[in-house]
Write a protein that binds this DNA or RNA. Structure first.
Lengths: 137, 137
DNA sequence: ATTATACCTATTATGTCAATAGGTTTTTAT
DNA sequence: ATAAAAACCTATTGACATAATAGGTATAAT
């Protein structure tokens, strides 16, 4: 399940993309427009800045702005940052302990395929697609 | 993310399918074979019985058995029972509170499509498919 | 100097997951 | 009848993640 963290991150990115402005936009403004607690958004937006999806500028007149055009962001890369667990079952996640059943497991191939499908889906949609309400294929 | 509950449920069903026997198989035996706590499995198997995916028989010589041939179970119906939240985002789940942003939301169509993909994937795989390590298409 | 802003560190409440514990009831085999 | 083997039932616990709040510091523009 996608948590609010991931969904909020997406909404912040979309909000900025919608403004289509090169100016910095204060978080306060975004929070009000989206109806989300500014304090909570701070936590989420931090990750986006650290990974250079957004650029923050301090002080009066500061705020946040995109670092690329909306068509150059995929939904997948945004969710991957805030969700951490794009792995669908723990058996597949990198930090899972070794399972000696894995070689014989009847279900692993299914999880792997689903993971592939999930990846392809979310990495195949850009912010611009969302703005235009146009899903690929 | 699929929880152990869902994965264990699947493994129990697979275990029974593999035995390919009309006899009742004690949970103790399944638990040992699968390396899962019997007590925990009790909780999981209860749901499967209540929904008639399994049949339980009490007393000496009792145990559990499938109610249908493996080809007539889909992975989807098993996971749906134990996971509850096959809804990917809370906005789409039935018990979510009304969101007045929904009509304008740029992300809802994406979540809906992903939900469709997820549903089609898991309801398109049967227990028999898993037994044979054969994923459809 | 003041104001507006990002940025930082910590804390909390809630809830779910995963698991354990200790029983009761039913059925079969002897 | 009796004993054993099994399902079935109710409650509790520890650990962890999520979602959110709180209060502060650093920076930049006017």
């Amino acid at each position: 399940m996608i948590s609010t963290k991931g969904r909020y991150a997406l909404r912040v990115m979309l909000d900025l993309a919608e403004q289509a402005s090169d100016n910095y936009i204060p978080l306060e403004e975004i929070a009000q427009r989206q109806g989300i607690s500014k304090k909570y958004l701070e936590i989420i937006i931090k990750v986006l800045v650290q990974n250079h999806l957004l650029e923050g500028h301090r002080g009066k007149g500061g705020g946040y702005r995109l670092t690329r055009p909306p068509k150059d962001y995929t939904v997948g890369e945004i969710l991957a940052l805030t969700e951490e667990r794009l792995a669908i079952v723990s058996c597949l996640s990198s930090n899972s302990e070794h399972c000696e059943r894995k070689p014989f497991c009847h279900t692993i191939p299914m999880w792997e395929k689903f993971e592939q499908i999930t990846h392809d889906f979310f990495f195949g949609i850009t912010l611009e697609d969302l703005l235009n309400r146009r899903l690929p294929e």
